[in-house]
Amino acid sequence: MWEYTDKVKDHFFNPRNVGDLPGADAVGEVGSIACGDALRIYLKVDDQKRIVDVRFKTFGCGSAIAAASALTEMVKGKTLDEAMQITNQQIADFLGGLPPEKMHCSVMGREALEAAVANYYGLERKHLEEEDEGRIICHCFGVTEGLIRKVVRENNLNSIEEVTNYCKAGGGCQSCHMDIEEIIHEVRQERVETPAKQPAREQRKLTNVERILKIKEILEEEIRPSLQQDGGDIELVDVEGSKVLVAMRGTCASCPSSELTIRWAVEAKLREFVAADLQVVEVKS
């Protein structure tokens, strides 16, 4: 029998915010019936980008239901930006802790939230994964390298068993154990190297969604207004890893120096405010 805290039991027996949300502004869904758990979360968001209402539906065990319920309580009233700051550990903490083998329930909550916020901005699921998005490491549970890297980094994991507890990877046929070990090793190296190189301001690596949101924000607030003054405009088309695809509009579209604008205005700003490795590429539409 699992040792669930009273808070977990409370949120399982009396889940908050269960159900559908007609007219929801965003839906996020992760997991599948094959994996044994899935979470669908609906958000209603006002013009201040504040989450005014939230509902969920879960297929899963007691702690999966409790974690989803907890998450809805945590995000209600928060802006999307604030909500995105919630970590899986905070969801677990809200519940007074989860059994180690059940930590993946909190990760699922965090993932569903990301999916919903991505959905709000009209982004696709693929943006949720990090650079190595395509590579699936654990085929039994369809877990990507990106997610494994993230749970290892954010939760300071050191063993395959912990990785399995947090995201299920490695919990099936075990043929991916070597790969997981390698990822753990690489992230551990990162940990050793990071303090020297990284300035204190960046606490943790941005998730893909956070990065895309940040790029959008910088374009909206720092770049578009000045371009628009000259009758031009810029549009974010897509983000592929560190590549930011943009399309130039209005006078910018035919401007011979748009290349310079991109290099010196857009890319420089994005590198300054978002990530140093970003590369802006113009796509002609």
Binding site: F12, F13, G36, D37, F59, G60, C61, G62, A64, I65
Partner: peptide
């Protein structure tokens, strides 16, 4: 369409 542990917990109650 539902999960066994959740059923067991409710039965246990």
């Amino acid at each position: 369409y539902i999960e066994g542990e959740a059923i067991l917990l409710l039965l246990d109650q």
